[in-house]
Design a protein around this nucleic acid. Structure first.
Length: 278
DNA sequence: TAGGTCCGCGATACAATCGG
DNA sequence: CCGATTGTATCGCGGACCTA
């Protein structure tokens, strides 16, 4: 086969999220962190039928979604807390019958059952009648998914750590600064950079009404640090940064301690949990 | 003396500059 | 470009003083 798979790495602004999409006609495969669930809804693929695998340490759960994977994942987000990553796949054209989904699901359950991994599934999946042709295409699809994952993404579905962070994270010794806001981890080269990425997401996803005490009509200042124009000191220092994708400028000329306090204020205003390590 | 206003001072926040 | 420091501004609260 001489196919040319495409790997599209979804990355907003910086490397904050871990959503990857692999295309290999006619299939697509998405891998993502649980933390990035919200962003998954933006993908067409997440609204197509598919098979998904929840991944957490030694545990796995195989599931199917006959209309939209995303809605099933949302449910699992509420009711299962042990997983931190997910892989799901389907056909780009959405043509996966219920019988095929049943077949793929139970096939995978069976395969996983033979490994040392712990399966969270209670049942073997549905056994529904599947015609010969449907079975053959489903089987071929599964092979293609595995091949694509193995060749392009270097992922073995049946392995213990299929998507394990490919070790750039290991230099956590030198770079232990991060912010955990609303279940998402933000890292970056500097405290100010992290601050900017967090605020960028806040401005994109949170209700501005909650942020009004922090918004200035024009130039930002240290308390109302979100504004609509830049601010430059008399001596020419840029005290603010433009937030990409929004009309806002935010004051960033803070010490680490002040950045921490600002983030705490934001978390309180938006009623979201935050963990700050700068 | 109760109630109200205002002043002063310590604490906190700000903005700019300075040093890696 | 990053983060800390520092001089200045502002806030907030207790207490003194005034008045009815």
């Amino acid at each position: 086969m001489n196919y040319m798979p495409r790997h599209i790495f979804i990355s907003q602004e910086s490397t904050n999220d871990h959503i990857s999409i692999f295309y290999n006609e006619p299939i697509f495969i998405v891998t993502a962190d649980k933390n990035d669930l919200a962003k998954l809804s933006l993908l067409d693929e997440a609204h197509k039928p598919g098979i998904y695998i929840l991944i957490g340490h030694q545990r796995r759960y195989i599931g199917q979604a006959s209309s939209a994977t995303f809605t099933r994942l949302q449910q699992h987000n509420l009711h299962k807390d042990w997983w931190n990553k997910v892989i799901f796949f389907g056909r780009e054209d959405g043509h996966l019958s219920k019988a095929q989904l049943d077949y793929l699901e139970s096939e995978l359950i069976e395969e996983f059952a033979q490994t040392s991994l712990v399966l969270d599934n209670n049942t073997q999946g549905n056994i529904s009648y599947i015609d010969k042709l449907g079975k053959i295409t489903a089987k071929a699809l599964l092979v293609q998914v595995k091949d694509t994952l193995a060749n392009i993404a270097n992922i073995d579905l049946l392995e213990e750590n299929p998507i394990e962070e490919n070790e750039p994270e290991e230099n956590n010794d030198t770079d232990q600064k991060f912010v955990n806001y609303n279940g998402k981890k933000y890292t970056g080269p500097s405290a100010r950079q992290i601050f900017i990425t967090v605020i960028t997401d806040v401005l994109k996803f949170e209700s501005l009404a909650l942020l009004t005490p922090l918004i200035s009509d024009n130039e930002p200042n240290t308390v109302k640090f979100i504004g609509t124009t830049a601010r430059i000191s008399k001596s020419g220092t840029e005290l603010t940064k433009k937030v990409n994708g929004t009309p806002y400028h935010i004051y960033i000329n803070y010490s680490k301690d002040m950045l921490r306090k600002r983030l705490e204020v934001v978390a309180k205003a938006t009623e979201k949990p935050i963990d700050i390590q700068l």
